[in-house]
Amino acid sequence: MKTERKELLDSLRGLYSKGYTYLVKIYAIDYVKTLNAIYVVRNLEEMKEEALEVELDPADAWVPSVMRIYKAADWYEREMQEMFAIVIRDRDAERLLLEKWNGTAAPLRKNFAWSEPYEKMG
């Protein structure tokens, strides 16, 4: 299910009220032209899953934080920010999760120069 960035919170709230209370995963895919953030939520009563896909501009990649709806989003969002340099707004600026880069490098994006030595990675 595709959605717009500005409608993301509303659609997630709508899903939450319909019983999709369990956040399965937040991940991103770099399609080079666009950067897609995907929110997978699950309804544990009816065993149904929904995936919300948000297309982002790679040069201006940010999404609002969904932590107020799903507590489980905390680490996923931090991981996504670290690996894709997708800025998460409306949440406390916290340390990153895994490698603690300085925030500009995006290792899982396709343009990441992964053959360069560690010092140059940013």
Binding site: K25, Y27, A72, D74
Partner: peptide, 30 residues
């Protein structure tokens, strides 16, 4: 454990792994 894969003919384009320890450990704080 869940894996989401975007498959190209030769190599995976993207593999996203949802690992169970990751979420369980995140709950430790709470």
């Amino acid at each position: 454990g869940i894996m989401y894969m975007i498959a190209d003919p030769q190599k995976p384009y993207r593999l996203a792994i949802r690992s169970p320890t990751f979420v369980n450990l995140a709950a430790l704080q709470h």
